[in-house]
Design a protein around this nucleic acid. Sequence first.
DNA 1: GTAGGGTTAG
Length: 578
Amino acid sequence: MNPNGQNLRFLLDKSLTLKQLKQVHAPIISNGLHHLQTLLLRQVLHSDFTFSAAIARYVHLILHNLKNPDAFSWSCAIRYFSLHSQYETALSLYLKIKRLGLCPSSFAVSSALRACARILNELGGISIHAQVYKFGFCGCVYVQTALVDFYSKLGDMKTARKVFDGMPEKNVVSWNSVLSGYLKSGDMEEAQVVFDEIPNKDVVSWNSMVSGYARMGNMDKAYFLFQQIPQRSLASWNAMISGYVECERVESARGIFDAMPLRNNVSWITMISGYSKCGNVESARQLFDQMSERDVLLFNAMIACYAQNSQPKEAIELFNQMLKLEVNIQPNETTLASVISASSQLGDMKFGLWAEFYMSEHGIELDDHLATALVDLYTKCGDIDRAYKLFHGLKKRDVVAYSAMILGCGINGKAVEATKLFEDMVNADICPNVVTYTGLLTAYNHAGLVEEGYRCFNSMKEHGLEPSGDHYGIMVDLLGRAGQLDKAVELIRSMPMQPQAGVWGALLLACSLHNNVELGETAARNCFKLEPDKNGYYVLLANIYASAARWDDERRLRKVMEKKGFAKIPGCSWMDSM
DNA sequence: GTAGGGTTAG
């Protein structure tokens, strides 16, 4: 049957699948049925299709095929892209509508404002604000509310309040917008005042307050409000969970989780990431296994949990499961960032190259998180040039990126470059943190620069940073290797926290390098106590005894090792067993 | 139509 205008029109009144839409589109264009294109566009824009690049292209195609571009169609498209987080596209369409000389509808204006708010396009939003008067949207609640929200998201509460106070008519969304602005800027007092003034609070008003107090760490107040919510939504419960997780009260979070009448993926993921943060991988995995409806974010949370808790093999194993046909979930940028981190912990360069290939094949954008993960991977595998290329290609170099690059230079013996990067970073007004110092100290350590290391270590306090056990460990290693064993011991004694095994291990290694039996025994005793199952420490002490020709002690130690079930260690590979 | 809850890199 040859489709004509009438039966196509009939089809368009139905709810169509994307495939059907595509089939309808061609005859509409070829038969010159331009008036039906608007209908077709409306079908697409009002459908429940999940957003995809294909649909986006499709919308553009119809839009540009319209013989008589009308404000309504364009406005629909702007709203569509804005709702699907395609803010840049929405804004460019908004600019186009104005170039065409058309008057945008009120929802085109509010959608464009929403886009500006989300991508923090200050100038764009302000110029739309000016147009609001020109187009006569001063009395439109939706547009005015979008303006309040725009300034709130920007943190400009003065202007937000001015627009809000000038609104002839307000609805609960307008109130919620100004409320969330105060909450976002941390002004709890003003937020509470606004909240108390809202004439008919809805569940969003309540939830905003709960998560506001939760973010401030005031969980008592958050819980107090939570209990009073007339009709709790899923988000109310989830806000409580993430609040407790944020305050590292994972058991309280679990209490809320267990008490929920209904859970969604957000509840599960928040809970899993909570367990991840406190190192409880087992509980996280238990939850993951209980969850049957797994999406990419759930996998991401669990993979990240493994990667962040030094279980890189498990991270990669789960990633492989995710790719299996029966699961068939497409990884995204977040997934790859975690998996690359896991590969880096394994020192597996192959995976980085595979990941870059996979990304180009699947159109996954190399964002800054991913690039930083790759910088870390490539430097750990010794490919500094490749890492530098990625580092220089970053859109924004932040403290994490600099720290990765500094550490990368450090472990590759490039102390001068590490120092240079550190200076660049400080000059760019980026504040170093404890990880940055780990990188810098590692650089001095690898280069054997004791003086510089000392100075660096002491300067941490000037930046308001407290050295961690790791920092002490590196310093002990640096001093120890240089033969300054007394200073190393002195440093350990000065530690404000209990030294971990690694710190004593560094001293033990130094003692073996410099043949110091007495100190070596002390260090070893502490290592044995803290990590009784690690044979490397025994081997080191045995080597110390051997080099001092204390064969009785050496034999005695070997016997202990055999009793503990350690395999006999050939003399050459003790470094590997550390 | 406007508002709220989830995963990522050193």
